[in-house]
Amino acid sequence: MTELLQAVILGLLIGGVYALMASGLTLVFGVMNIINVAQGAFLIFVAMVTWWLWKHTGIDPILASVITTPMMFGLGWVLYRTVIVRIRGSSPSMSVLLTFGLALTIEGILNITAGNKFKSATPSYFEESFRVGDISLPKSQVYGFLAAMLVLAVLYVVLTRTWMGRAIRASSQNPSGAALVGVGATSTAALAFALGASTSGVGGSILSVLYPFFPASHYDWISRLLGIIVLGGMGSLPGALVGALVLGLAETLTATYGSLRWATLVFYVVILAVLLFRPQGLFGTRLREDVAV
């Protein structure tokens, strides 16, 4: 029983972190129909930067997200303005190929500059745990979870309570209508892409503590995150949250009662099983079409 409870709690903790990482991906897809395959590479890039900062300045890796988040916001904005904007209006599959190329480019640059070795940030609390009754909660996971929840809450407020959030949501529902009332599609898309990228700022900093990483790790991460948004329903934020928790639970439960090596596979099997009954994912809506768009 304790074992089960421990697995569930750990699953929810890590699921919260996954939720944050996937939120940026699903946001970008929901607003501009772009699957950003480079989101995983963003995460690894940030983890590298965090690791470097921690190594050289001693700053706490999770706190380093105060630096990495605006950095990724800026980088996302610049990338959108210089690269992504060029494929606006072409089919979404082109965005997959373009961001896939971007991911490889980032991986290639990291290969050359940071070397092809596993790294991990190990602050002082790295091996410590909180104990609640019989359950032990690793401090790094708890801090990571809290940071992720804080950022998700901020993201929610930004999307629902600010002009920028309303502009992004308006643009995602009806771009031409939004343009008519003064919300420029391109600048809004740049903001949304930057916002999506900025979630990888916090996400990557947390990642650097929780998992060892090296440049090619981004494949594992992007396939996890993409799995989450397929399971939850593409473009749905609540869907990303639920999908992330399912992944977290699938991983910890498989690790507890089976072997960690099969954890990812179990998650993919869950996805296929869900798609069998709900092809649009848990929270996805089917697109409607009547007059040609």
């Binding site: 690269v83 190329g101 480019t105 290639g108």
Partner: peptide, 16 residues
Amino acid sequence: SSRVLIFGLALMIIVL
């Protein structure tokens, strides 16, 4: 070691 970088750049250039 530079293969990944070259492939990535080539993919981006072709798409764009």
